[in-house]
């Protein structure tokens, strides 16, 4: 129990950290590929977004909470998320017939950004919630 509490903060063993460092770029690239190539192959924006969120979760599980959150630039992410949501909303509400670049690249990228950030935010909130709970449990 005590050992598991420590691994929560510092991350996992050296092997897992090294493998994560190697595979992280490939997982991110695969997510973006799935999101962008959704118009010619099976895939789509939401599946790509979930894969990107899974890569972030992977980093967080391997390196611990602090290291993963330090790598993210929160303000820039907030700007990108708001911008993509606004673009998506504008395209859908205006309702022009989108084809070519708009429907093949822009909408899947917006979907992927929205899904990835939302799911990662939920994961962080749940991890923080259960960690507070665990600390309170050990304190008693």
């Amino acid at each position: 129990m005590k050992r598991m509490g420590n691994t929560e903060d510092r991350g996992m063993t050296l092997i897992i950290k090294t493998v994560t460092r190697i595979t992280l770029g490939f997982i991110l690239l695969y997510g973006i590929y799935i999101a962008v190539s959704g118009h010619v192959e099976p895939g789509g924006g939401f599946a790509g977004g979930v894969i990107v969120a899974l890569s972030l979760v992977h980093v967080m599980l391997a390196f611990g909470k602090e290291a993963a959150l330090n790598r993210l630039h929160a303000s820039g992410l907030r700007v990108i998320l708001g911008l993509s949501t606004l673009v998506f909303l504008t395209i859908v509400v205006l309702g022009f017939r989108c084809r070519g670049l708009v429907s093949e690249i822009i909408i899947p990228i917006c979907q992927a950004v929205i899904t990835a950030s939302a799911l990662f935010a939920i994961f962080v909130a749940l991890v923080l919630l259960s960690k507070k709970d665990r600390d309170a449990e050990e304190g008693k």
């Binding site: 118009h39 895939g43 789509g44 093949e104």
Partner: peptide, 8 residues
């Protein structure tokens, strides 16, 4: 729409 994948 110019897309090959009909579901998308």
């Amino acid at each position: 729409t110019g897309s090959l994948n009909i579901v998308e």
